[in-house]
């Protein structure tokens, strides 16, 4: 899709346009990252004194059970949220665009709200839903006669990850809805109308006609979703502080806890670098996987 060489702008023009954003971005994002990389080779307990200790932070990182447990939780989040956030958002957008649905503007406007609200409020609301005495969930289970299922939800280390993922999914569906909505706007209306959900096989049409047309945007959504969930922090912090124990600990929270809670800036920097590298690997891996899968499909 690159433009013809004949109308390609001069290098000078490209440089002039890119200079400011690129310089700004490199200064703000990469200089601190490189600084952190340097610090990660030091023992640094949060003061002016730093002692070079070679790779020992990294050796510790490789052996740190909590960090790898947290990494596992991030992978869980990524998978759950790609299906939950991007997947559900796509389905809801298809529904909103259907002729059978009324009040489209309301649905388009409201869905985005949860992602605008501070994490502390979201956390409070969901804590109330899960609360074992006053919570809606236990109240509902009791109402349908399944009191045996009632429990202290957020204290169950087996399912706590699922329980903190649900609010995260709910909160960001609207975010991806907005992105997908605008992508669909770029599709020709004729094509789109033929893919509307108006009957039994509407969803098939949506999947076979619309999805390929907005493939690029969906890939961007998936990338955003992976990136966002590899560094997830706020919501889980408000709801469980990573507990019980480390059952809902995620990498960014662990890095924060080590840096600020334990004043261990050197190891904290090492964790940041670790998060960055792992995220890169996961994103790279997912891109390769997606390319592989879609190539298969196109060939078939």
């Amino acid at each position: 899709m690159h433009m013809l060489n004949a109308i390609r702008p001069k290098n000078r023009t490209i440089i002039a346009y890119l200079a400011i954003p690129v310089v700004m971005f490199v200064f703000t994002v990469f200089v601190p990252l490189v600084t952190a990389l340097v610090y990660s080779f030091f023992e640094w307990k949060g003061g002016p004194v730093k002692t070079f200790n070679g790779l020992s932070n990294y050796i510790q990182l490789f052996q740190d059970g909590t960090f790898w447990e947290a990494f596992g939780h991030n992978i869980y989040l990524v998978i759950a949220c790609i299906i939950g956030q991007v997947g559900i958002a796509f389905v809801l957008v298809m529904m909103v665009n259907s002729k059978l649905v009324f009040c489209k503007t309301i649905h388009r406007t409201f869905g985005f709200f949860p992602s605008t609200i501070a994490a502390v409020c979201i956390g409070l609301i969901w804590n109330m839903i899960y609360h074992n005495k006053y919570g809606i969930l236990n109240w509902f289970l009791e109402a349908i006669g399944r009191k045996d299922l009632c429990q202290v939800w957020l204290n169950n280390s087996d399912i706590v990850m699922l329980l903190v993922t649900i609010p995260l999914i709910w909160q960001y569906i609207g975010y991806y809805m907005v992105i997908i909505l605008s992508a669909i706007a770029s599709i020709s209306t004729d094509i789109f109308e033929s893919s509307e959900i108006d009957g039994a096989n509407g969803f098939q049409k949506a999947v076979y006609i619309t999805l390929p047309l907005i493939k690029n945007t969906m890939l961007v959504c998936i990338t955003l979703c992976i990136a966002g969930n590899m560094k997830a922090f706020d919501n889980i912090y408000v709801m469980t502080k990573g507990g019980p124990g480390t059952s809902s600990m995620v990498m960014a929270m662990y890095g924060y806890q080590v840096s600020f809670g334990q004043s261990n800036m050197g190891y904290g920097s090492c964790i940041s670098v670790g998060i960055f590298v792992l995220s890169l690997l996961v994103i790279g891996g997912s891109q390769m996987l997606i390319n592989y899968v879609t190539r298969e499909k196109e060939a078939a």
């Binding site: 204290n155 280390s157 990573g242 507990g243 019980p244 124990g245 480390t246 059952s247 806890q257 809670g261 334990q262 004043s263 261990n264």
Partner: peptide, 21 residues
């Protein structure tokens, strides 16, 4: 003492009070 010790003890203790450690 220092925060590193307490941060680790507190996290473990929460699991201990659940009977998991």
């Amino acid at each position: 003492i220092n925060s590193a010790v307490w941060s680790i003890l507190n996290t473990d203790m929460q699991s201990m009070m659940n009977g998991e450690l």
